[in-house]
Design a protein around this nucleic acid. Structure first.
Length: 287
DNA sequence: GTACTTGTTGAACG
DNA sequence: TCGTTCAACAAGTA
């Protein structure tokens, strides 16, 4: 499930390949996966790719933008040549090809570029989407405007969090950092890993945290995300980069999905539920 | 066969 | 109006 680091990895990978390419044709196999007048995209070029939280924004020529959310199982995979997955490997990377032949039965949208290359949108659980907008419309789009600062923004400070906490005195710290209007781009994995790194229990009421603890937490979320960039993202579920390759971060989790395992501190990792989400923590070193 | 998982939205509630 | 809780979405995995 792509969170901020994974989406950023996809953004970089795609940007290195498809900037300047012209859309020659589009196959829409599942209507809800591509919302809007798809025929209006024909002939447009990809100008740039931005990321906001866990969303990607493709800016096309003539003031059109695509807003892409991969949700739980969405994938964007680029092939240099349609029907030839050897063309998927860029820069000599060995193919950890886990996606297999494309299109597959989970390929819902296919962008065919004028040079014969292809971009596949695959989504096993069909929660993800690509929406077509006028670039201008994005400024007033609720899903974008409601987002809080990202963990790497300089505005993401303990004071920023304290201000939010004062409005939400009952919220548990994990619920707050998972809330996209608080820290945009943080998902379940990096919330748990960040809290573990900071030695803070996900069950703590946010209001009880000191300024120092909040500072530690922010720096820890950055640290685990940085680590994920290094390892090419987490592929615990269905994440692959733009070339269909898995990341390695899941082999370096300290706490996520480790219920019953022994924590480096010697304690036993527990699973519980916070805000309706599976939550992993070590009661002996997270206070 | 059944429970569970996951991010986000939207509805219902106080 | 605001915060909080919870169902809904899909489909594979345990």
């Amino acid at each position: 499930m792509p969170e901020l680091p994974e989406v950023e990895i996809i953004r970089k990978g795609l940007a290195s390949q498809i900037i300047g390419k012209e859309i020659a044709g589009i196959d829409v196999n599942l209507k809800k996966s591509l919302q809007g007048p798809s025929e209006s995209l024909i002939g447009r070029k990809i100008i740039s790719i931005d990321r906001r939280a866990k969303m990607l924004i493709f800016n096309l020529s003539d003031g059109i933008s695509l807003l892409v959310h991969l949700k739980l199982t969405g994938q964007l995979v680029f092939d240099k040549k349609a029907g030839d997955k050897d063309g998927r490997v860029a820069g000599g990377h060995p193919s950890a090809d886990w996606v297999g032949d494309l299109p597959s039965k989970f390929t819902h949208v296919v962008f065919n570029f004028s040079d014969g290359s292809v971009l596949y949108f695959n989504d096993l659980r069909q929660f993800g989407y690509i929406k077509i907008y006028q670039t201008e419309e994005l400024k007033s789009l609720k899903v974008l405007n409601d987002l809080g600062y990202e963990p790497f923004d300089k505005e993401a400070t303990p004071e920023y969090l304290m201000k939010i906490i004062s409005r939400r005195p009952k919220a548990k710290i994990k619920q707050l950092i998972l809330d996209q209007s608080v820290l945009a781009g943080v998902g379940n994995i990096y919330a748990d890993e960040g809290l573990f790194c900071a030695g803070i229990s996900p069950l703590r009421t946010a209001k009880e945290l000191s300024r120092t603890e909040l500072e530690q937490l922010i720096s820890c979320i950055r640290k685990v995300m940085d680590k994920s960039f290094e390892f090419g993202g987490s592929s615990e579920n269905t994440f692959v980069n733009a070339f269909g390759e898995k990341g390695e971060m899941q082999n370096h989790f300290n706490i996520y999905r480790k219920a019953g395992k022994i924590c480096p501190c010697g304690g036993k990792v527990k699973r519980t539920v916070v805000g309706g989400r599976g939550t992993y923590y070590c009661p002996s070193c997270q206070k």
